[in-house]
């Protein structure tokens, strides 16, 4: 763990409304604790509130009430802007710049050293095509370019919204290895996915459905508790339990 002994993220009674005044309550009374220095998977179907939770954590979401602390500070605190890396679901890099130009700009903003540009290019395996314009890249290359931006300045917490979607299996494996390497070096990671199979890649899981936390434990604990064979089975078992109780 770096700079911080407590958990990476703490939510207490978190409530988030999306879409402004006539918006919808996406998260209503969530309690959650994400430990530091681990690779935590945020899994759930599309529409379960994963992106909204991540936007709240990085301080991009308006209408957030309740307690939400990130690295011991209130979410959105100016100091966190140096310490949290965020990758949006759609790759948010400039299509009319080269990968390297994008990285150089964001490195300036983060106050990261110039040498970071080459380091993150190697980490996402884009070094050979660093001078290509983002607009001509494939979807997978573009999302890795977007990921590379978040690695600049070695943030303490990485919030990655579906970073492995649409990638080929080899690249996906490589990225998960990279995430594990970062966690070993002390980075806390919150990585979302709607693909339940990716549960096996994470140190710890948070299962979400309809804006609530269904489970928050390790995969073996989850499987033992539900008697399911995999994360998808466990998810279904938990939903059925809930529905039976209701």
């Amino acid at each position: 763990m770096r700079n911080n002994q407590g958990p990476a993220i703490v939510a207490r009674g978190l409530r988030v409304v999306r879409g402004g005044r006539r918006g919808v309550v996406v998260i209503d009374g969530m309690d959650l604790e994400v430990p530091a220095g681990q690779l935590v998977g945020l899994l759930g179907p599309s529409g379960s509130g994963k992106t909204t939770l991540m936007r709240a954590v990085v301080g991009a979401q308006a209408d957030v009430t309740g307690t939400l602390e990130v690295l011991g500070l209130p979410a959105g605190h100016p100091e966190l802007r140096h310490r949290v890396g965020y990758v949006t679901q759609a790759p948010s890099v400039y299509g009319d710049l080269t990968i390297r130009e994008n990285l150089r700009y964001f490195a300036h903003l983060m106050g990261a050293p110039e040498t970071d540009v080459d380091r993150v290019l190697r980490e996402v395996d884009l070094a050979p095509i660093g001078d290509r314009r983002v607009g001509v890249l494939s979807g997978g290359e573009r999302s890795r370019a977007s990921l590379a931006v978040a690695l600049l300045g070695t943030p303490d917490l990485l919030v990655l919204d579906e970073p492995t979607v649409g990638l080929d299996p080899v690249l996906r494996r490589d990225l998960w290895l990279l995430f594990h390497r970062l966690a070993e070096q002390g980075t806390s990671l919150l990585v979302s996915s709607h693909v339940m199979d990716e549960a096996t890649r994470c140190d710890r899981l948070v299962l979400m459905r309809a804006g609530r936390v269904l489970a928050d434990e390790t995969l073996p604990e989850l499987l033992a508790r539900t008697g399911a064979a995999d994360a998808e089975g466990a998810f279904l078992a938990l939903v059925e339990q809930e529905e039976a109780a209701a």
Binding site: V58, A60, R81, T88
Partner: peptide
């Protein structure tokens, strides 16, 4: 619309 502004606003800019 490209999401770059959202990302910028989470950086120290």
């Amino acid at each position: 619309q490209s999401g770059t502004l959202e990302r910028l606003m989470t950086t120290p800019i």
